[in-house]
Design a protein around this nucleic acid. Structure first.
Lengths: 373, 373
DNA sequence: TTGTACGCGTTATCAA
DNA sequence: TTGATAACGCGTACAA
């Protein structure tokens, strides 16, 4: 197996060459070496039945010898118009995708459908961090045949650009768009179930730990003003599910303590729990909008010397893998299935449709009867 | 904001058009609309100081109006020769990358460096599933400027092809290649520390749960014959670390029960543990080559009615996030740091170097003194 | 500051 | 089966 540079490549007189020390081996080089047309070599790779098996073998052998590793992806893509990949857009920085267990599960599902349909997967960070006077840079440099929008704000600039591009789109969770397929759950009903469970256990004093309602990194009580301007419909729905259920049981929304958390992390959950614990009329039940927040809250509660669930019950949302080891009661939503369905819809290019997946109440040891005061 | 198709695009007489219902909006269209050269539009995106701010504004405005979302990635890449992305190769199917907590952590690190250096990240499944007579297909369709090889067998065909391509390469864990930078840990020393800890606790009867030594899906006792032909150097090193340490303490390798597991999962770990438990001379200490295996083993041990660590001690390897909640003693290796370093080295294009990161013994409740028989 | 001309490596068409 | 030729959309040296 010779090193690449030592082969007798043709060196056509190219007036201005790239800085590459050695030219890239191309399809043409292989063709020249075998004295066949470059079309034939191309066919060897993508249309095996267009040439004799023997010739195909020879072509691969020479390719190997010259160090040709197959058609250049960029050139192929330019010629075919297809990228062979789908883009997964989310509104955080890239590493976050590997930090949040919920996203990881969704991606696992996306990857499953991608593998099945022979597509690649591009992770694209699509935060709202474009400065206004900045060039409308392409969404990642990634070339993709379609996008999955994962839980993005309706006014996210990248999401808007993705819609402008005339390629297939699927939305997970939010925003709901006309003529765009949607995969998600019934957040309102799911949240209502969580609240209902706690009501059945006799709780009367509630606290809510909410995910962010805007992009301003606010961390503090969820004021009525903020409540009226929620950027994410899933948050609106969950809040609605919690509060309307409590209200039906005679608990006024104004009497429910709400704390807003800017980032989905355990630390932030712990901080929120500390706020709830210091309240004059301490809640006996906490509804958290994510398991990570709930688990952080549990930590803070125990650190404060209180028992779960004897003193306080905690209810999560998501059912991430660690929820079980933490014995957290929660709402299970089918993250992986979301990903599978979204990618499937995208790759099959079916007609627009809404897929609403089922959720499930998972009761564990973080919830119990309200303490008798 | 007009829909894409309604703008008065130039329609040059192209003899054979693609099947696209509407032509893609290109840089040229924007240029034509403004009656400027297509170079000027290009400059607006990549060389802001080559034109007046006012014109740049107008260009972006027209681009927006026409639905032009910036330079086509494939064309740009073909022209510049740069992809703006690095490829992460691993030898399982795509979804596995989101299943294994260790890989997820490595990827988090890779993503961090990528974000910092403005590079994208392509996940590439590079299993040994190519049939022999199959076309040497390109590695994923992904176009990348360099590869990170994550723990691949030295004879993996994709790994070999990656080396043939004349682009930067970094290896994590294995294989060690000449002239290729390496990021990893001292597996032998780390394994030795694990064995040493158990020896200090007075254990004399050991069992080992090994990761796979070959690609044949074998699941069963690790025979001497197989031991002599291990495909992965990390496995060789860890086994060496375990066994040589035990031998120094007077325990012959032949007296150590070894079970080989084909896939890194809890189920497989449980299965392995069942084998060890049924042995005539049941071990009091189990050395597992991964935390997932160890956690599965713990489950099986408890299911068999035995207490951890009173009856059996279990020692893992990795320190994945759930190891803490499972109270598993283990070797911590800096997964995220591995990813950060590897991507950094790749993107900085520094000279070849080896980065050996530190490991750490984490003692938790899954290990205790040997039971007095 | 703008425009011209060419090359990037491949696929697709059509005639031979 | 094979081979010429024309796109594909953009970057860039060079000239204006």
């Amino acid at each position: 197996m010779k090193p690449v540079g030592s082969s007798p490549l043709l060196s056509p007189k190219t007036p201005h060459r790239r800085q590459h020390s050695r030219r890239k081996v191309t399809l043409k080089d292989v063709a020249a070496r075998l004295k066949v047309s470059h079309t034939t070599v191309s066919n060897a790779y993508i249309r095996p039945n267009q040439l004799s098996a023997a010739l195909r073998e020879r072509i691969f052998a020479v390719a190997q010898e010259l160090g040709y590793t197959g058609p250049d992806p960029a050139a192929k893509q330019l010629a075919t118009g297809r990228a062979g990949a789908i883009g997964f857009l989310f509104s955080e920085e890239l590493p976050y995708a590997f930090t949040d267990p919920a996203i990881v599960s969704v991606l696992q599902g996306v990857a499953e459908s991608c593998t099945r349909r022979h597509s690649d997967l591009a992770l694209i960070s699509a935060g709202d961090n474009l400065r206004d006077n900045e060039a409308p840079v392409s969404l990642g440099h990634a070339a993709v045949d379609g996008y999955i929008l994962y839980s993005m704000a309706p006014d996210n600039r990248c999401a808007l650009m993705a819609q402008q591009r005339n390629i297939p789109l699927i939305v997970i969770d939010q925003p709901r768009l006309e003529n765009v397929s949607f995969v998600g759950i019934d957040d309102c009903a799911a949240a209502a179930q969580a609240a209902q469970k706690l009501l059945e256990l006799g709780h009367k004093r509630f606290g809510i730990l909410s995910l962010k309602t805007a992009h301003d990194n606010y961390c503090g009580p969820l004021t009525p003003k903020r409540r009226a301007n929620i950027a994410h419909s899933t948050i609106t729905m969950r809040l609605e599910g919690y509060l309307s259920t409590l209200q039906k049981a005679g608990i006024q929304p104004d009497n429910v303590l709400c704390w807003e958390i800017p980032v989905n992390s355990e630390e932030a959950g712990a901080e929120g729990a500390e706020y709830l614990l210091q309240a004059p009329c301490r809640p006996t039940a906490i509804l958290a909008m994510s398991d990570r927040i709930a688990i952080g809250a549990m930590r803070a509660i125990r650190a404060a010397g209180l028992k779960i669930p004897q003193d306080i019950s905690v209810f999560g949302f998501d059912d991430i893998p660690t929820a079980e080891t933490a014995q957290l009661s929660t709402i299970r939503q089918p993250h992986t299935q979301k990903g599978i369905e979204a990618a499937r819809l995208l790759l099959l290019k079916e007609e627009r449709q809404n897929v609403i997946l089922d959720t499930q109440v998972i009761q564990r040891e973080s919830t119990g009867p309200a303490p008798s005061t």
